[in-house]
Structures are given as C-alpha cells and as structure tokens.
Simulated assay, not measured.
Amino acid sequence: MKVAVGGPLKLAFRPWVEGIEYVPAEGPAILASNHLSFSDSFFLPAVLDRKVTFIAKAEYFTTPGVKGRMTAAFFKGVGQLPVDRSGARGAGQAAIQSGLDVLERGELFGIYPEGTRSPDGRLYRGKPGGLARVALASGAPVIPVAMIDTEKIQPPGKVVPKLMRPGIRIGKPLDFSRYQGMEHDRFVLRALTDEVMYEIMTLSGQEYVDIYATAAKRQLADAAKAEKQAQKQAGQARKEKEAEEATEREAGGQEADKAAGTERSGS
C-alpha cells in the first residue's frame, strides 16, 4: 500500500525534501511534525524508504458500509493506527502505548505535538502528554519535521487537493537521555516539548503562538458565531428601521391627503 499510495503522490505533487539523511536507516525514532493538513500523514511517509506509523481517529476504521471499509483499509495500508478518543485520559494513554509498541518493534513513529491541525497556518504550543512521555519511556531519538505549504494543497474542509509542490524539512535528531526516568515531572515534559517545538518553528519558519491549537479553534469558532449573531442582529435592526420608515412615509402620505382634502373643501 505504501508503494501504491506513495508513488502516485510523489509523481503528482513532486514534494521536495531536505534533511532526509537525519532519518535513520534502521532502529526506532520519533518523527515530531507540525500539522497543517490532513495530507501530512501521507506526504511524509511518501518521501521516506521506511514505514512511518501515525495515530488516527478510531472513526476512520469503524465507519459502516463499503466506503467505511475502503477508508479503513486505506488507513491501515498507509500505516495508521486507530485510537478511540472518546475519553480524553484513556485516549492519551492508548496513544502513548501505541507509540511505544511501534518503537519497540524498531520502527518509526509519527506524532503531531500540537494535537490537531493548525487552524490558520501558524505553529501552536505542543502538548506534553504524548510526545514527551513516549520519548522518555522509549529512549528513542526525536526528529523534528516541518511540513511546508501542505495547508495550501488541502485546506480544512476541501476534498479535492490542489496540485502544487509541498515541502518537507527534517532536522537533526534530538537526544533527551538527560531526562531519563523523569517522565512524571511535568516541568521536564514541558521543557522537552518546548525544545522540540522550537526546532519545528526554526525549520518551518512559522509564526509561533503560545496557546494550544484546540483553544485557538474554539476562539475562532466563538468569533465566527459572534460575528454571525451580530450580522443577524444588524439585519433585524435594518428591517425594523425600514419598516419604521415605511410607516412614517405612509403616515406622512395620509396627512398630505387629508390636508389636500381640507384645502379642496375650503375652496
């Protein structure tokens, strides 16, 4: 499946890649990437000779019907693992264990520290619970990755991608053995995650925003909702004003007719 998907992707989009020599030819490693588009999980594996396993929503694997089965087969074929995200705490532990299982097999594990796609192309604060815990528990090196322009190829909500060249910039592996055995120290988890995010920012050239992407999405949704409500209220006020002006015109017309009638009677 990797050949079947990766070959056409490289042929159609011709992604450019820098720093591919930093990905080890064998052995476990964590690829920590920014997340701009749904297609990120396909372009990165497409340019590598080794299999990369990412985590995907369980819904992609459990949707009924022919389309659901085809989607599940596709995601399994490109190396994505289902994780049930219905319970936040349980989902986080399941994701960590899935990553450790991949690394224990000596394979590459891909993860998006932001936890979700960027809503506006900027780089957001990394969540320490997944990346840092997997890195410290496994001892595997963390390789920062920057996806470039993939959000322009397939923005959120767009089904048909635009044909253009995305880029992938890979940085030097980061060794966090100095933190070994400190995976329960929240300050260590934060420091490790921030160090990785700094490297991703340097590679990608993105503007960094020190809030979580999930919070930014809520803010954008709230702002859009408020704007829609304001437009609705403005429209209602405009209608009321137009109705009031129409009533005033009608009243003025009636007064004019009355005055004209009085004048005719007097003459």
Results as ranks from 00 to 15, higher is better:
K10M: 09
F176D: 01
A221K: 15
F54C: 06
M164D: 13
M147G: 01
G205D: 08
T63F: 15
G129E: 03
G171R: 03
G253Y: 08
R133P: 00
D185L: 00
W16E: 10
S41A: 15
K258N: 13
Q229E: 08
A46V: 08
Q219A: 14
P144K: 00
L174Y: 02
T62Y: 01
L9M: 15
D120L: 07
K258W: 14
I211L: 12
D175Y: 03
V145D: 00
L31F: 12
G106V: 08
K172A: 11
P141G: 13
L189A: 00
T63H: 13
P15D: 13
L163C: 05
G121Y: 00
S265C: 08
Q254F: 11
D49M: 14
V78F: 14
D40G: 00
R125M: 05
A256T: 06
H184Q: 15
G205L: 04
H35S: 00
N34P: 01
D185V: 00
T150F: 02
F13D: 04
M197T: 13
R85P: 06
E59D: 05
Y124F: 12
R186W: 01
L48K: 05
S265P: 10
P156L: 01
F61V: 09
K258H: 11
K217T: 03
L220I: 10
Y198P: 03
F75W: 11
G90T: 02
T193P: 02
Y208Q: 12
V5Y: 08
E107D: 14
V134C: 11
A32H: 04
S98T: 14
G27R: 10
K162V: 11
E227A: 09
F74Y: 09
A4V: 14
V145S: 00
S265Y: 04
V17P: 09
T214G: 07
D257L: 12
V209P: 06
D194E: 15
Y124Q: 07
A73Q: 13
I96R: 06
P156R: 01
Q97W: 05
F176K: 01
R117A: 02
A137G: 09
Q206H: 15
I148D: 02
S138V: 14
A251T: 09
P82T: 14
A72S: 12
T71Y: 06
G90S: 09
E255M: 13
E242M: 10
S118I: 10
K127Y: 09
K239D: 12
I55F: 01
S98Q: 10
K258S: 13
A135I: 13
A223Q: 15
